[in-house]
Design a protein around this nucleic acid. Sequence first.
DNA 1: GTGTTTGTTATCAA
DNA 2: CTTGATAACAAACA
Length: 298
Amino acid sequence: MPELPEVETIRRDLAASIVGPEITAVQLLFAKTAKNEAAFFVGALKGHKILEISRTGKLLILKIKSKASEKMQNYLLVHLKMTGQLILVKGAKKIGGGHSLGGNSFADSVGGELPNKYTRAIIEFKGGTKLFFNDLRKFGYLKIVNEEELARILAAGYGPEPLTPGFSATYLAQKIKNKKKNIKAFLLDQKIIAGLGNIYVDESLFLAGIKPMRIATSLKLTEIKKLYQEINKVIKKAIANRGTTFNNYVDSAGKKGNFSHLLKVYGRGKLPCLKCRRPLIKTKLAGRGTHYCDYCQK
DNA sequence: GTGTTTGTTATCAA
DNA sequence: CTTGATAACAAACA
């Protein structure tokens, strides 16, 4: 379940490796993974280079360098949804004639050779580096869009991100006004805040001491301020720890995130609350598994 | 066989 | 019209 910290971890790793070299081949193993017609999709990538990699919320945005003859500026969007993975396998480098690559770290958590049965697409770069898009449940997608389409998608679907100037306690308070839905559903809405998912919403609400089923408008200004701060803190800390691996998230090297053992409530079922030792509660809210402490969260 | 898992969208209801 | 709540999707596992 990659959310903002996990996608950001992937973005940083990929930026260091696949910005620059020419794309030499594209394989689409499951047609519906690409949201464009297959021939167009392959053609838009093959022979081109990636100029830069950015991210909005959970959406990765790879800027594609157009050929001189093309005027259109294209972008490759990558959304991992629930089970998507981007795994980078670097081409064999000749280092002073010695043996090059060490053990493949991805083999440990990804479990062996790539492509595997969940590999939906492969992008190959000059020099032999390969990028594997794996997606067990086929929710994730790759899509080529032009400048206008990208702008439209971002404007329509994504609010400000945590840790950016557009996201402030004032902004939160303004958006909460007249919202009658519960605070959990509110925080999951990407148009309000881009990048939070089930894990970090549960964590933020615990850290802020607010019950997830509270109606948004019922939050007092002090609670909103606290919530704002805790969202920023938990996202920052999760990025610093390369994200959370709960089910099958791994970074582009196939390694798990380190934030998993720093989770306070998510996935801790009936285990004792780390603050008050009373058993945590797991229920369903906004259609999602929801974890909280009935005593510590008001 | 049943119930879970979640990001996003589609659909329906108020 | 707006807003909110819920189903649907996909596939695998306990």
